[in-house]
């Protein structure tokens, strides 16, 4: 809203577009390599282009299992984060109470601390309590850092939603549930969707915390990490990388689309 499109100096323009290109060119390289006929090395330029690795990757049982595990984990974690994040946002934005600052600090902590600390803390807690690794230990870790994503989006929307709307609804005779269903929910729906989308992308892609809470299970990022450390079939890894780009870009673009008018809300404070 500030910018008026004043012409910038050549140096600044170059630096700005150069920086933006720097952010995206490497991804283009990954996409290019998914089509290469070269099997054994990362030779540039590619010796030839082919589509066959997409078919090969689709046939791979381990890849398909990893994809479906990651999708399930992301879906359930997002659901948990949506419920808990919305509740926390409603509480923090609607009232001032003793300890409010500590509550928001606690919500932000899982992403403010390096992921490895969240991971190792959860792992040692599972060990101490002798909880075996399962689908749910992964979800537990993911939901913990997804809550804040939903919370950030919801709290920003609550702040922009006038409290008088709720009062008006109650004055007109609606009870709390009707007010929630017909007044509050329509107002915060797109913020929740956006938060949910970002949480989904974050969870689908997460590897650091997952390393500590997955045990022997293989989510898609864990599969990719093991391929990076000990490559087995490089072309398949390239195809999976492209798949991850697509699956995480789509929800983020949707989230942006749903919170566009709210400015930078959706992207704040990962």
């Amino acid at each position: 809203m500030r910018s008026d499109g004043r012409p910038a100096g050549f140096g600044l323009t170059l630096a700005a577009f150069g920086g933006l290109t720097f952010l995206h060119l490497p991804l283009a390289v990954v996409v290019l390599y998914a089509f290469t006929t070269d099997e054994k090395s990362y030779t540039f330029p590619p010796s030839g282009l082919t589509l066959k690795w997409f078919a090969v990757a689709l046939e791979r049982e381990d890849v398909r299992a990893a994809i479906s595990l990651s999708l399930e984990v992301a879906a359930i974690s997002t659901l948990v984060a949506l419920i808990l994040g919305t509740l926390a946002a409603a509480a923090v934005s609607r009232s001032r109470f003793f300890g409010r600052e500590s509550v928001s600090l606690l919500l932000i902590l899982p992403i403010a601390l390096p992921g490895i600390i969240t991971g190792i803390a959860l792992r040692s807690a599972f060990n101490l309590l002798e909880i075996p690794w399962s689908f749910w230990t992964i979800v537990l870790g993911h939901a913990t850092f997804c809550i804040v994503v939903v919370y950030n989006n919801a709290v920003a929307r609550f702040r922009r939603t006038s409290a008088s709307l709720i009062e008006a609804s109650m004055d007109l005779g609606a009870d709390g549930f009707q007010t929630f269903r017909w007044v509050v929910l329509p107002n915060i729906a797109t913020a929740l969707l956006a938060g949910g989308m970002l949480a989904f992308a974050l969870s689908f892609d997460e590897v650091i915390v997952t390393t500590f809470t997955a045990g022997q299970q293989t989510t898609l990022p864990i599969w990719m990490l093991s391929e990076l450390v000990r490559p087995r079939q490089r072309p398949v890894t390239n195809v999976v990388a492209v798949f991850v780009i697509v699956v995480t870009f789509l929800p983020i673009l949707l989230a942006y689309y749903w919170t566009r008018d709210g400015g930078a809300v959706a992207g704040q404070g990962k």
């Binding site: 990954v30 997460e206 990022p221 991850v244 995480t248 870009f249 983020i252 992207g267």
Partner: peptide, 15 residues
């Protein structure tokens, strides 16, 4: 800026 911030950490390392 948003897209690379939220997504594909591992893919971006891999690239």
């Amino acid at each position: 800026v948003m897209l690379p911030l939220w997504s594909s950490y591992l893919v971006r390392v891999y690239s």
